[in-house]
Simulated assay, not measured.
Amino acid sequence: MENHGVIHNMWFNTSTGVKLPYYTTQGIDSWWDNGSLPIWITAQRQGLKTGSIHFPGTKAKYQGEEVNMKLVEPPLFNYSNETLWRQNIDTAMEWFTVNNLDFITLYFGEPDSTGHKYGPESTQRRTMVSQVDRTIGYLRQRIRESGLESNLNLIITSDHGMETVIKSDEIHLRNVENFTFSDIQFELLDYGPNGLLVPKEGKLEHVYSVLKNAHPKLHVYKKEEFPKRFHYANHPRITPLLMYSDPGYVIHGRYKVQFNNGEHGFDNEVTNMKTIFRAVGPAFKQGLVVEPFESVNVYALLCELLGVEPEPHDGSLETTRPMLRSSAPLLAATKLPVMLGIALILRCWGGAY
């Protein structure tokens, strides 16, 4: 995040105080176009044809370029519509077979939404996981019916886990002794376990000192002291003070406006924050179970599958190379791959396989 600059679901400007939600920022190129290129653009520049369905960043242009074919989720989108899920899968198959695309990213926002609303251990989320499972079955079926099974690689992964929100002993910054929001120029709070603060001139040390030990489950840092392992602080969009909470604890600001029963964004070393990785296709070994690995390594794998030269990145192909049948470069004529990002699918199981 400290390299690509997408550090929050909220678009913000610390000088003007403007905050815009994800849906609004889909068309704001400046938020997405930070010098880092999505794999769609890299692949297109090297002669491939790409598509994206509802994947974050799909609508934006990067250095004036956009993905060849796309579907952008509309405002107030219903993530749980199983009929639409299948329609999007059918669209992806058509793009491969009729439009001869080489790479498609396909995103579903469930069971993330259900996990937020009802909690990861709820009956509602278990029901939604069953719906996701049916959808993966439908995807595999449509790949076979479209005659793509022998030359298409499918990757199923996601971006984070989910933790049950703890409703007792909550973190409320407004109740902290000697802390006042009149000392704050800008804040980004109430969105889970993270907080970004810009104290007014001359107030940084005071705000830091009163918040540092305000709650046993709250961790407050000056930007330059934030733990390096998060790879989060070294970017100009990160504010002078930042904080995170222990698993299950949400940071509340001026008022309590966050009532989710499930949340993510906690320490990525926590088991319930782990995601999944499944892959099937001609490039992959069958029945192989691998050790957990960081998701940042998926990009290099995709570039290898596509036969394209990657942009500068933080991952390593050596982490995922043992999954592949051969270490030799793959034929460019092979259709590679569909990447299916289903937020939160079975993520409470943890690990990467």
Score class of each variant (00 low, 15 high):
Asn153Leu: 07
His160Glu: 12
Thr180Asp: 15
Asn151Pro: 12
Leu148Lys: 03
Gly161Asn: 03
Asp183Glu: 10
Ser158Tyr: 04
Leu173Ser: 08
Gly147Asp: 01
Thr180Ser: 14
Ser150Pro: 11
Arg142Cys: 15
Phe181Met: 00
Arg140Gln: 01
Glu163Ile: 13
Val176Cys: 06
Ile156Ser: 09
Ile184Asp: 10
Val165Lys: 02
Asn178Thr: 13
Asn178Pro: 03
Ser182Trp: 11
Asp183Pro: 02
Leu152Gly: 05
Arg144Trp: 01
Glu145Met: 01
Glu149Arg: 14
Ser182Asn: 13
Ser150Thr: 10
Arg174Phe: 12
Val176Arg: 09
Leu173Ala: 11
Ile143Leu: 00
His172Leu: 15
Leu139Val: 02
Arg140Cys: 03
Asn175Asp: 13
Lys167Phe: 07
Ile171Lys: 09
Asn178His: 13
His172Ile: 14
Gly147Asn: 02
Arg142Pro: 01
Leu154Gln: 07
Gly161Gln: 04
Thr157Ile: 05
Arg174Tyr: 05
Gln141Cys: 03
Arg174Gly: 12
Asp159Gln: 09
Arg174His: 14
Glu163Arg: 09
Gly161Lys: 10
Ser146Tyr: 08
Ile184Tyr: 08
Ser168Gly: 06
Ile155Asn: 15
Ile166Asn: 03
Ser146Ala: 14
Glu149Leu: 14
Thr180Pro: 12
Glu170Ser: 15
Asn175Ser: 15
Thr157Trp: 06
Val176Gln: 09
His172Phe: 12
Asn178Leu: 06
Met162Asn: 09
Asn153Gln: 07
Asn175Cys: 11
Asn178Lys: 05
His172Gln: 12
Phe181Pro: 10
